[in-house]
């Protein structure tokens, strides 16, 4: 199976990635970092995309919202997609602002019929403006979104089926939510329509403890630590059940180790995915 594994493109990793291009099949560029790029920067990105397959990843569109997505931001994404011609672009199932207040990061919206309807409209608008459907990614949350009437897997699966978008399945995000809110990763995965899963994210995180309730802690998806074992276990399972090639990106946003450490982690992911592929237990078709 032609799975491809690669790294998130971050300036401190650039020279390491370029030196070891034979070990990196694909890179994922944060689109928002280049919304204001100069012509020279765009030209550099184009050169990079000619050397190594590139995918673009958005972080601030706020697609999963009852409120309409900002067309100006979509225009900038469209311009970047046109300039770089990535293999695909992706964005999170998150809201990042509301009523004029910028949250500053990805927040989980209440999982309701209203946010499903809003998200579907936003995905339609995005597809029309950018010219291609985004892959949509499940997010990690420290708070169980208030006002939710649906479970996360059900909410995500409905959006996937009704939008017919593909999914960027972040395995650490679902693992973090599972330990934080007490559900089974396996059950979540089984609720998703596998034919929609086209790409995966791997990352790590750390525990954070509440000051007000010191007996309570949550797993924070900070992209600063190595990928934990349960995420590799899930990767193997995904390899078993998803019948088509996947693009797998290891995300690391800081606390950078030497590049060989990340390349080894990527190799571990490659081996794990292959193990899943070889055990070849495809999900039984539901009749």
């Amino acid at each position: 199976m032609n799975d491809r594994l690669g790294l998130g493109w971050r300036p401190p990793l650039a020279s390491g990635i370029l030196t070891h291009q034979h070990r990196v099949d694909v890179i994922e560029i944060i689109a928002d970092d280049y919304f204001d790029a100069s012509r020279r920067e765009l030209a550099r990105l184009k050169t990079l995309a000619a050397q190594i397959p590139v995918v673009l990843h958005g972080v601030s569109l706020g697609m999963a919202s009852a409120a309409p997505v900002d067309a100006k931001r979509l225009d900038r994404m469209a311009r970047l997609v046109e300039a770089i011609e990535p293999e695909y672009w992706s964005e999170h199932l998150a809201f990042v602002r509301g009523g004029g207040t910028e949250i500053g990061h990805l927040a989980a919206p209440p999982r309701t019929a209203a946010t499903i309807a809003g998200t579907l409209k936003n995905l339609e608008t995005a597809t029309a403006i950018v010219g291609s459907k985004p892959l949509v990614e499940n997010i990690a949350s420290l708070i169980d979104p208030p006002g939710s009437t649906l479970g996360e897997a059900e909410w995500v699966a409905t959006i996937l089926r009704e939008s017919n978008c593909s999914m960027l399945f972040d395995l650490h995000n679902v693992y973090a939510n599972a330990v934080n809110f007490g559900f089974e990763v396996q059950t979540y995965f089984e609720t998703l329509p596998v034919e929609h899963i086209k790409a995966l994210h791997l990352a790590g995180g750390r525990w954070v403890r509440s000051r007000e309730y010191p007996e309570s802690r949550r797993l924070l998806d900070d992209h600063l630590h190595q990928v934990p074992l349960p995420v590799f276990d899930l990767l193997r399972e995904v390899g078993k059940q998803v019948p088509h090639p996947l693009t797998v990106i290891l995300e690391r946003d800081g606390n950078f180790p030497e590049i060989r450490v990340l390349l080894d982690e990527l190799e571990q992911a490659r081996t794990t995915l292959k193990q899943g592929r070889e055990s070849g237990l495809l999900r039984p078709l539901k009749v």
């Binding site: 009852a66 409120a67 509301g98 207040t101 949250i103 209440p110 946010t115």
Partner: peptide, 16 residues
């Protein structure tokens, strides 16, 4: 309920 007010309130609650 259309959900927009709740999101706006949550955004403020997270920030303020």
């Amino acid at each position: 309920m259309n959900g927009e007010n709740l999101e706006a309130f949550l955004a403020r609650l997270y920030v303020d």
